[in-house]
Write a protein that binds this DNA or RNA. Structure first.
Length: 262
DNA sequence: TCCACTGTTACTCA
DNA sequence: CTGAGTAACAGTGG
């Protein structure tokens, strides 16, 4: 599930559930999601601390406390939910943070492809995110265009490379390229000035709607709404959509709306 | 049983 | 060094 819009939704969950509240206890129900730390170290770092304003960078969520920072990554199936401590614990609830005020923050993840990291201070938190490109929601046009122009790979691969631009995943990249009428296989460095402008604008608009929805919405008027159709048709021109694989990910595009460029 | 899946990374090859 | 492809991680579902 999680791409930037989903993680932005989790940031809001974290804020409304945990900001200003003290961590009373931490239950690790599956240590497989802890990276570079033990249950003991996680408890020692967080119990008694109060969560402050959370932040997001790309697909990373930062739960700050003024001291240590908990970094959360949701892989493909992770979620963050706010519950009451006595609510029934669902399947795949891996870590439970019981907070003051009768709240419980729950990190849930089916596949455990990513998980939780702990940074003892802001310096270490920054170091964990050092490889990330600019956040896709915060990046300005100039920075965006510079990042694209400096890579000769296919534009879809570049858009989903978190070290170039942080936040876009497989669905969003397809959606943005479709909206900007660009074929995913075009070389990023071959994009014209007009292409890059359309791409930036398309990304902003797509992200804005998706953040409001809290996910990449499978709307009928979006490409994403048709990925799983048996014979998917372009919502704009009704042409049969094409499906292929790029960098091991399924890629969907419209052969008519997204011309070759040549 | 086989295949796919909104993520990331280590590894190979060109 | 760059870019592209693959398997692997783990779990579920069609």
């Amino acid at each position: 599930m999680p791409e930037l819009p989903d993680v932005e939704g989790f940031r809001k969950v974290l804020k409304s559930c945990a900001k200003g509240r003290v961590v009373q206890r931490v239950d690790v129900r599956d240590t497989g999601v802890l990276h570079g730390m033990s249950t003991r170290r996680l408890r020692d770092a967080l119990v008694g601390r109060r969560f402050t304003e959370p932040e997001r960078h790309g697909k990373w969520l930062l739960a700050r406390t003024g001291g240590p920072t908990l970094l959360l990554h949701f892989g493909m199936t992770g979620q963050l939910a706010c519950a009451r401590p006595d609510d029934v614990v669902e399947a795949h609830n891996r870590v439970l943070f019981t907070l003051g005020g009768g709240r419980q923050l729950r990190y849930r993840d089916q596949r455990k492809l990513q998980g939780l990291w702990l940074a003892d201070d802001d310096f270490e938190a920054a170091r964990l995110l050092a490889g990330q490109g600019p956040d896709a929601l915060a990046v300005d046009r100039a920075e965006f265009e510079a990042a694209l122009s400096s890579h000769r790979g296919r534009v879809k691969t570049v858009l989903t490379d978190q070290s170039v631009l942080a936040g876009l995943g497989n669905l969003l990249a397809d959606e943005v390229l479709w909206r900007a009428r660009l074929r995913p296989t075009v070389r990023a460095s071959d994009l014209t000035e007009a292409d890059r402008r359309r791409l930036y604008t398309g990304m902003r608009r797509t992200l804005r709607s998706a953040v409001t929805a809290g996910c990449v919405p499978p709307r009928d008027s979006w490409l994403t709404g048709h990925r799983d159709d048996p014979a998917p048709a372009c919502p704009r021109c009704r042409t049969l959509l094409r499906r292929s694989r790029m960098a091991g990910r399924s890629t969907v595009w419209c052969p008519r709306c997204q011309p070759d460029g040549s």
